[in-house]
Structure formats: C-alpha cells, structure tokens
Computed example of a mutant assay.
Amino acid sequence: MFTIEHDFDATIVTLVDEGAPRQEELREDIVITAFEDCITLRQFNPQRNDDVVITLSLVQLRDLGAALNLPEGSYRLTPKGQTP
C-alpha cells in the first residue's frame, strides 16, 4: 500500500509494508519526499530510535530507475543524440 500527498514544495509518497505470506516481521514505513532538486528517503530505525535519511540527486534517481531494468554491468546514461 502507498499514499501520495502534494505539499507546496514537495510530493510525498509513503510506502507501507503490509507483509507477505510467511514474512516474519513488517518493515517500517518509507517516506519518499520529492523536491525540485532532490529526493529523500526516510525510514525509522527502531534499534537506533531515529530516522535514517538518504538523499538522492535527480541524476541518481534516474540512474536507479534505469538500473532496475538492466542486467549486471557498468553503465553511464547520456541524453539522446549525445555521445558519451
């Protein structure tokens, strides 16, 4: 399950772990906040009693999206019509 909210300066997506068959424990919610120049991922860590925050640039996010659909290897994405 997930929710989407639009704030003044960001879009916020929350991913909720609803579990899977035979999954022993649920993971904490992940809150993804999309700003104009970056994306943050935030998840509560119960062992530290604190949030863990990861910030990705928009280029890193683009690369992550591409990486999910590519086989193992090393890649560099370039805009169409531009040589690497």
Rank of each mutant, 00 (worst) to 15 (best):
F8T: 10
F8K: 07
F8E: 15
D9I: 11
D9P: 02
D9V: 09
D9K: 05
A10L: 12
A10K: 01
A10V: 00
T11I: 11
T11D: 15
T11C: 11
I12T: 14
I12R: 01
V13A: 10
V13P: 06
T14N: 11
T14A: 06
T14V: 13
L15M: 09
V16E: 15
V16F: 13
V16D: 14
D17H: 02
E18P: 04
E18W: 06
G19W: 01
G19V: 02
G19I: 04
G19E: 11
P21V: 00
P21H: 07
P21S: 07
R22H: 15
R22V: 14
R22S: 15
Q23R: 03
Q23N: 08
E24D: 13
E24Q: 06
E25K: 03
E25H: 09
E25D: 15
L26E: 13
L26C: 07
R27P: 08
R27W: 12
R27Y: 15
R27V: 13
E28V: 00
E28L: 00
E28F: 05
D29E: 12
D29L: 01
D29Y: 02
I30P: 11
I30W: 02
V31D: 09
V31L: 04
V31W: 00
I32R: 02
T33K: 06
T33F: 01
T33S: 12
T33D: 07
T33V: 05
A34D: 10
A34T: 00
A34P: 05
A34G: 08
A34W: 07
F35I: 05
E36V: 00
E36D: 13
D37C: 03
D37P: 02
C38G: 11
C38L: 06
C38T: 08
C38Y: 12
I39D: 12
T40S: 09
T40F: 06
T40L: 04
L41V: 00
R42S: 13
R42E: 15
R42H: 09
F44Q: 01
F44D: 05
F44S: 02
N45I: 07
P46D: 06
P46G: 07
Q47V: 10
Q47M: 14
D50F: 07
D50P: 02
D51K: 08
D51H: 04
V53F: 02
V53N: 04
V53D: 12
I54R: 04
I54M: 14
I54W: 12
T55D: 14
T55H: 06
L56C: 08
S57T: 01
L58D: 14
L58V: 03
V59H: 10
V59G: 15
Q60P: 09
